[in-house]
């Protein structure tokens, strides 16, 4: 005899619970948490190097970085004299909330104003996993092509901030910045879009100001 049970729950229920616990903790500690998502090579680590260097002295920041292998990205942040912890996923294509929880316990960052979580380079899978962050930031570099928001709509609907990186290459590559911004706003009319070059510093001030305003809003 067979029976059918009506279940109706999220498949990622365990992750959702872990993410909610993290969100409560970050809210009590009044730490702003940002989850950065992009394809490999879009410039997540480079943007973070420039960002934490600008905020250093004013704010206590730390970086958790997920990669399949090597400590290279965490090393790049540590070279600036700032705290970072590398999560090695051993092949997994995304970070989940339990990995973040475990990494925070091992990293021993202490009290923080801002925590940046640099996800595994992948425009697809990290989208599904809540890490307890305040918001997701999607990065798209000018060398990736200007059709990406419609090709990977999920992350562009979920990220409240989109950063177009490597804008110093605008005259070298065929990348229609306006068309991309239209695609992003089609998928998410409320999204904030920044044009940034970590190399020349263009747009860095506006991006960092947005982070500081979000921190102030969380503490208000």
């Amino acid at each position: 005899m067979s029976q059918t049970a009506d279940v109706r729950m999220q498949i990622l229920e365990a992750n959702r619970k872990a993410a909610e616990a993290l969100r409560r903790r970050f809210s009590q500690e009044k730490t702003l948490v940002v989850n950065l998502i992009s394809s490999p090579g879009a410039g997540k680590t480079t943007l973070l190097e420039a960002t934490v260097a600008r905020l250093a002295g004013k704010l206590r920041t730390a970086v958790l970085v997920g990669d399949i292998a090597t400590e290279r990205d965490a090393d790049r942040i540590r070279r600036l004299g700032l705290p970072a912890y590398q999560i090695l996923t051993g092949g997994a294509c995304h970070l989940d909330a339990r990995q973040v929880e475990g990494a925070l316990a091992r990293a021993g960052f202490g009290a923080l104003d801002m925590l940046f979580i640099e996800n595994v380079g992948n425009l697809i899978c990290p989208t599904s996993y809540d890490l307890g962050e305040d918001f997701k930031v999607v990065l798209l570099s000018l060398t990736e092509g200007d059709d990406k928001p419609f090709k990977y709509p999920a992350i562009f609907t979920k990220a409240s901030v989109a950063v177009l990186t490597k804008v110093d290459l605008q005259n070298i590559v065929d990348f229609d910045v306006e068309a991309v911004e239209t695609q992003i706003r089609t998928l998410n009319p409320q999204a904030q879009v920044f044009r940034v070059s970590a190399k020349t510093g263009e747009g860095m001030e506006a991006w960092c100001r947005t982070l500081e305003l979000a921190l102030a809003a969380k503490r208000a």
Partner: peptide, 25 residues
């Protein structure tokens, strides 16, 4: 007017059908 995107992010378990007593009906 600009449009909002709603829904489409479902990733849910809805139903499980199973055998009781080890027999298939």
């Amino acid at each position: 007017a600009p449009l909002r995107v709603e829904g489409g992010d479902e990733l849910d378990l809805l139903e499980v059908e199973f055998d009781v007593n080890g027999e298939k009906s």
